[in-house]
Simulated assay, not measured.
Amino acid sequence: MLINCVAYENGAKLADIPVEDISEYIIRPGCFVWVALSDATPEELAQMQDEFNLHPLAVEDAHHGHQRPKVEEYGDSLFVVMHLVEPAAEGEYSVNVGEVDVFVGKNYVLSVRNRSKQGFLGVRERCEREPELLRNGAGFVLYALMDAVVDRYFPVIDALEVELESIEQQIFTQGGAARDKIKQLYDLKRRSLILKRAVAPLVEAAGKLHGGRVPQICVTSQEYFRDVADHLGRINGSIDAMRDTIGTAISVNLSMVTIEESEVTKRLAAWASIFAVCTAFAGIWGMNFEHMPELKLRYGYAMALALMGGTCSYLYYRFKRAGWI
């Protein structure tokens, strides 16, 4: 679906143009066309391929989708793939993973957004408010799109970190089942892995756009791409730290479960020892032998009860002092 198709010249917007007129504008000096598509059909991609002379391999990747984040050069043009990681519906412990494919040439920018509810209208408005920067052409538009995608990673990782802190606090409380906490931690680890798969390849890809041999399209915007790469590095480091913390939290949670089980085992063992005394005495005096000592004593029954009670009380005192009860 076509979102918009706009022509720009010397940093200023000329007009919204029909797709059929693209070829007339891209041949004008200092002019470039920015087209945005959402969930594009094969027919729309084929039309864009004809208008911008896109490389067939790049078009094929955009058509099939589910590509790894990357930056590829095709002659004097670029093909950039980025993952859009967005929180799912409120109250759900999941994230939605979309994709944006960007074709960039000297006189055009084509963005194809797939499986994502959040558009890039704010990016276009931002660029139009900065005509001095927009004069840098398609390279600056590519930076603006990448910057918008990377900025959307920050709320996701912030939400994951807040959730992790909440689970860590629950580990040291008595409430909540251990199984539920481990399930939450593994679910958190799965979502952090999704974010990692979006960020880590893009760190390397963004490095191609500043320093060293930079594509001609991006030469005038190198410092901006360096800023994007710096943000990606920070996010990547935060993800690694969070994944390490999740692993530690899982180990601590399992250790707490083991400690609790040990406490329960000690209590059971202590009470079993106490009742074992009663069982032993009762078992001895319950034997049906004719000649047994103390059977003829007048206070033998009371003495037996007192002996059992005293022994059990002493054991209870010792176990209580040792912290087993």
Rank of each mutant, 00 (worst) to 15 (best):
D151I: 01
R126D: 07
G139D: 12
S221A: 15
E132H: 13
Q169D: 15
V149M: 03
V214G: 02
N114P: 00
A198Y: 01
V214Y: 01
H210Q: 08
L232A: 07
V123E: 06
G119Y: 10
T220F: 12
R129N: 13
L133N: 15
P215V: 02
P201F: 04
F140H: 01
R152Y: 09
S221H: 10
R135E: 15
L134R: 09
D227Q: 11
L185M: 10
Y153P: 05
D227A: 14
R152C: 07
P155N: 07
N114M: 13
E168F: 00
G139C: 11
S221N: 14
G137F: 04
Q174N: 15
V199Q: 01
K189G: 09
I217D: 09
K181N: 03
L133S: 14
Y186M: 13
A206L: 02
A148P: 12
Q184L: 12
I171G: 03
I171H: 03
D180C: 09
E161P: 03
F154P: 00
Q216D: 08
A200W: 09
N114H: 14
L209F: 11
Q222S: 10
Y224C: 04
C127N: 04
K189H: 14
F140Q: 00
M146V: 08
R213Q: 07
E125S: 07
Y224I: 06
V150K: 00
G119W: 00
S192T: 13
A200M: 06
E132W: 09
K183T: 11
H231K: 12
A178S: 11
R179N: 10
L193V: 09
F154N: 08
V214T: 02
L164T: 11
A206M: 06
A178V: 10
Y143H: 12
V141C: 14
R179W: 05
F225Y: 11
L209E: 05
Q222C: 08
K196P: 02
R197Q: 03
L134W: 03
V150F: 03
F154W: 13
A200D: 06
N114S: 11
Q216T: 13
D147M: 06
E165N: 10
A198S: 05
T220L: 15
D147H: 00
A177V: 10
R213I: 04
D227R: 10
S221C: 15
E168N: 02
A206R: 01
A178Q: 11
L185F: 08
E223Q: 15
L145H: 06
A159E: 14
N114Y: 07
C127A: 05
A138Q: 11
Y153C: 04
D230Y: 06
R124P: 09
L202E: 04
V123D: 05
I167S: 02
Q174K: 14
L164I: 10
L202H: 06
A198T: 04
H210L: 06
G211L: 05
E130M: 13
R152S: 12
E125Y: 04
E125F: 01
E132G: 11
V228T: 01
I157R: 01
R135C: 12
V162L: 12
V141D: 09
R190L: 12
